[in-house]
């Protein structure tokens, strides 16, 4: 295996209800299968839905790290929502951080209440570009809707993550992890998740 940064820090970010925890669990299983020492730190509050959710997935060949990535030390950010990409990038990104983002917004309640406004997506992407290195967009919500249901947006993003060549876990391990995860699931759920993982994706680079 090629040499990777030690530790390799991944952050999966989204909004409560988007399946963030399941995605980070999959990333953790996949990296364990690939032989890494893995620690995953989850940050979510009491709210079942609507709050920011962030999972730090840290991979090491040598040791066990703490569950939180230090600021400015993310290598890969996978975001299910653009505002969350920006929130995480503004704390954890550096000039060589790679960001894969689903540009479909989920509005905070403060926006509905007209107490805050949601930035333009183009401005968010510009912001990400100014904070990090390569930024890729994946229309995961619409892809998920096309292949199965919008709920499997998270698996479309895991699909995208596993396709990104710069991350150190081979795609086959994600596939194995998903298989393991779906063992007890119903047929419909299995089909939906597999379609979301196997559907062909193009990562669009934002310039």
């Amino acid at each position: 295996m090629e040499k990777i940064k030690e530790p390799y820090n991944q952050i999966i970010a989204g909004v409560g209800g988007q399946g963030n925890i399941l995605a980070s669990a999959l990333a953790g299983i996949a990296a364990t299968k690939a032989g890494f020492n893995v620690v995953v730190g989850e940050t979510y509050g009491a709210s079942q839905r609507g709050g920011s959710v962030m999972s730090h997935v840290r991979l090491s060949r040598e040791k066990t790290y703490g569950p939180l990535v230090p600021s400015g030390q993310a290598d890969l950010i996978v975001a299910f929502e653009p505002l969350e990409a920006l929130r995480v990038a503004s704390k954890y990104a550096n000039a060589s951080t790679v960001i894969i983002v689903n540009p479909a917004p989920v509005y905070p309640v403060s926006v509905a209440l007209k107490e805050a406004s949601y930035p333009e997506i183009e401005d968010i992407l510009k912001g990400l570009k100014s904070l990090a290195g390569d930024v890729f967009t994946v229309n995961a919500t619409s892809i998920a809707r096309e292949v199965a249901t919008p709920k499997v947006q998270n698996i479309v993003m895991i699909n995208a993550m596993s396709h990104y060549r710069g991350q150190p876990v081979q795609r086959s391990y994600y596939n194995d992890a998903l298989e393991e995860f779906l063992q007890g699931a119903g047929l419909e759920q299995k089909e939906a998740n597999k379609k979301a993982f196997l559907t062909y994706l193009e990562l669009e680079q934002y310039n």
Partner: peptide, 11 residues
């Protein structure tokens, strides 16, 4: 951004 990053309050 022209605006700040709105917080997601628990709701």
């Amino acid at each position: 951004l022209k605006v700040s990053i709105p917080e997601r309050e628990m709701a």
